[in-house]
Nucleic acid binder design. Structure first.
Lengths: 194, 194
DNA sequence: CTAAACTCGGCAAGAACTTGCCGATTGGGG
DNA sequence: CCCCAATCGGCAAGTTCTTGCCGAGTTTAG
């Protein structure tokens, strides 16, 4: 369980049901969540407040997720972006990643998986040399937890990059099959067959 | 048609028919084309000659396109890479892009479109020497090394935030004094008295 | 249906890490 | 000079992690 200063998330989605559902769930998980239902208001929010992560739907009426991503990349280079979309075409995904999205999730989004990814990204980002946000006084957090989160993130990412193949992942990470399995079990990483 | 120095392309594909077909077509289009039928020989080529662009199949026997991409990203950061694949899953595409591929094409590849993309990439690349630097986690080496590096970073950061005080740092990281000392020694972290 | 390729997880020996206990060192104050 | 505070590192018992060996489901291609 984490007790550090809550991370601030901005969720953007034109589907209000999805939006509020995600927002509610993430708040329960301890994040500080702001929402926006379109790119314009999202940009408004981003302009007046600092966020640790933005999660946006790719397909929205008007200015869409890609444009929003682009705007963010130019204006807030350090803000990690998660793109979410159902029925995304390959070119769209490619474009999104090229624009600098950190990850791409397909609808429907598994809340648990989303939370894991969020935590993982925040863990790496906080540690990265970019420490852009003013840090609060005593934000002590066990080293082991942070390292664990990071390791978990690496595992998930490698696994995903390998298309879910354990064999491929172990080569990529330089681990023996057995060790990889152990770590996955220990850290609660599952192969998400896509 | 201009007469500038022809761009040098390296095409990697295990399917020799596809390989030669593409090579032939691209040569007709005025590119200087080299080919390789597997990752190993591709690396060989890349090691001995300079290229402007590499086009590789994602799925190949043995060391696959992802590994090749990874190798290139580490060794030749500026070389743009096109990945080609049929039946690629979303996570694979995301992973490939995250590894730094410039574009991702689906088989069967339309030669005309390919040429367009090649020209476009070469143009932009020549124009902006940096391409896109801000990429996220490029998969590098063994998991353990990366985790170690991360932990070291956290230690250094915490130590610095504590003004070099070990006592303060141990509280902050939730470690016993002895453990902290051990880690510092193991990871080669020293107190930089400021 | 069978063979081959992948994956999993139990088990156990060995390696690596954690941590309390002790004594030693270094700098200030008193 | 002595005492206190902050650090270090040796030692050793206790834990946790790594990894090879084995046997067992699952999938996939023939």
């Amino acid at each position: 369980m984490m007790t550090e200063a809550p991370a601030r998330l901005l969720i953007v989605d034109d589907d209000l049901d999805v939006l509020s559902a995600h927002a509610r769930f993430l708040r329960v998980e301890g994040f500080e969540v702001s929402v926006a239902s379109d790119a314009t208001s999202a940009i408004g929010r981003l302009s007046e407040e600092a966020f640790d992560l933005m999660i946006t739907d790719l397909k929205m009426p008007g200015s869409d997720g890609l444009e929003l991503t682009q705007w963010v990349r130019e204006s807030l280079p350090d803000l990690p972006i998660f793109l979410i979309s159902g029925m995304a075409t390959m070119p769209e995904v490619v474009g999104a990643m090229r624009l600098g999205a950190v990850d791409f999730l397909e609808k429907p989004v598994d809340p648990e998986a989303l939370v894991d990814k969020i935590r993982a990204i925040l863990a790496t980002h906080h540690a990265s040399p970019l420490g852009r946000l003013p840090r609060v006084g005593v934000q002590a957090q066990p080293l082991t937890d942070r390292v664990r989160a990071f390791e978990k993130h690496l595992l998930e990412q490698a696994l995903q990059d390998s298309g879910g193949s354990v064999k491929e992942t172990m080569k990529r990470l330089g681990l023996s099959r057995r060790t990889l399995n152990e770590k996955m079990a220990r850290l609660g990483v599952r192969r998400s067959d896509s």
